[in-house]
């Protein structure tokens, strides 16, 4: 710990970290918390709640349950994929919204309907 504080950038890592690196670590932390959430849910509850609840809750606890026994490397991989997905969304989403935005009324490209 003492050694890394010899580097001004490393000693102030919370401020000098690159946006990409920060997004990756934040995604890994999210995956770690999700894995602990899977650890906190008793799978027997789903048996009691029935199939209807399990299907309704597919995006929530049911899917997170799969992460309960994940190891660090799997969490890092999932964090990397999540970070890549968020980065792609950050680039792609404005382009998608730009297409949806209507052209100005009197522009030449405006198709009269």
């Amino acid at each position: 710990m003492l050694l890394i504080h010899r580097s001004p950038r490393a000693a102030n890592a919370v401020r000098t970290v690159s946006p990409g690196g920060e997004l990756f670590v934040a995604s890994v932390v999210i995956c770690m918390i999700l894995a602990s959430f899977g650890d906190a849910v008793d799978p027997a509850l789903f048996g009691e709640a029935g199939l209807e609840f399990a299907l309704f809750d597919l995006g929530g606890e049911f899917s997170v349950l799969a992460m309960r026994h994940w190891h660090l490397l799997q969490l890092l991989l999932a964090g990397g994929i999540l970070a890549a997905g968020i980065a792609a969304l950050r680039v792609g989403a404005p382009a998608a919204f730009k297409i949806l935005r209507p052209a100005p009324r009197r522009t030449i490209d405006k198709v009269p309907i």
Partner: peptide, 28 residues
Amino acid sequence: GSHLVITLVDRYPSVILLGGAVLAWTGY
């Protein structure tokens, strides 16, 4: 390895953040 470690963490400070997250995960 001290020089190598300093070079690595100076170039990629996110290693420190990841180290902190792994320590927290190990603690949990």
